[in-house]
Simulated assay, not measured.
Amino acid sequence: MAIINSTVKPFKATAYHEGKFVPVSDETIKGKWAVFFFYPADFTFVCPTELGDMADLYPEFQKLGVEVYSVSTDTHFTHKAWHDASDTIKKIGYPMIGDPTQAISRNFDVLIEEEGLALRGTFVVDPEGRIKVAEIHDLGIGRDAAELLRKVKAAQYIAAHPGEVCPAKWTEGAETLKPSLDLVGKI
């Protein structure tokens, strides 16, 4: 089954967020745009570069009404310890979800079963809980938060403008396309 336009499966977890442990569930995310940002493990190498990059752009995501959730199979306790130990992770303002049961990673089909770790998976979820963007990387390939921000803007634009599509390299304010019979073969 294709994951695009599927609904986020039910889950309950605990996140480390702004110095507290907070509950997060599939119900928590409803009503606003969300990004799920899966990564293999705390205290590793590529992960802090990605999470730090996301932290730097987090205010831009918030301006768009998007909540970012980082997720690994570590516990929320480990997230707090990493936050306290690392200057890069200390700047994170978004919730860091612990997935020690691996249920959320399994739900999003990013779990490496034999290792108990998540692949680098990125998912953009609309306010109804439907997945609009899905991207999965091998463990050694880091992601770019600016490119994700562009994809979120495109997903939000398309949601607000039915009948239009965003072409390759579309950026906010650029022209979109309106698919029609007259457009076939003209691009």
Score class of each variant (00 low, 15 high):
T28F: 05
K32V: 04
S72N: 01
A146K: 00
R130H: 15
T73W: 06
S72W: 03
H79Q: 11
D99E: 08
D53F: 07
F38I: 06
T171Q: 14
M96Y: 03
G173W: 05
G98Y: 10
D99H: 12
K80H: 15
G163P: 00
D87L: 01
T7A: 10
K132D: 02
F45E: 05
A155Y: 10
D182Y: 12
I3T: 07
N107E: 13
E175S: 13
A118N: 03
I4A: 00
F108M: 04
A145E: 11
H83E: 01
H79E: 00
P100R: 01
R120W: 01
R106N: 13
G142F: 14
L64S: 12
F123Q: 13
V133H: 15
F21H: 03
V71N: 15
S180P: 03
L119P: 09
I141W: 06
G116N: 02
Q156T: 13
I104R: 00
G116M: 12
K91C: 03
T101K: 00
P95K: 11
I4H: 10
T14R: 00
K20E: 06
E27P: 01
T122P: 02
Q156K: 15
E135P: 06
C47V: 01
A134V: 01
F77H: 03
K91S: 09
T176M: 04
K12T: 07
D74T: 08
G52P: 07
T7K: 15
I131H: 04
E67Y: 02
P179W: 05
R120I: 05
P167S: 10
P59S: 10
P162H: 08
A15M: 02
K169G: 02
D99T: 04
W170N: 02
G173F: 14
A85I: 03
L117C: 10
F61L: 06
M96H: 02
I89S: 04
F77W: 08
P179F: 04
P95H: 12
G140T: 03
F123N: 03
L181P: 12
L149A: 06
V8I: 11
A168D: 14
S6T: 13
G19Y: 10
P23T: 04
I97D: 10
D74A: 00
G31F: 07
S180Y: 07
D74F: 03
K91V: 09
T88P: 12
L111W: 08
F37L: 13
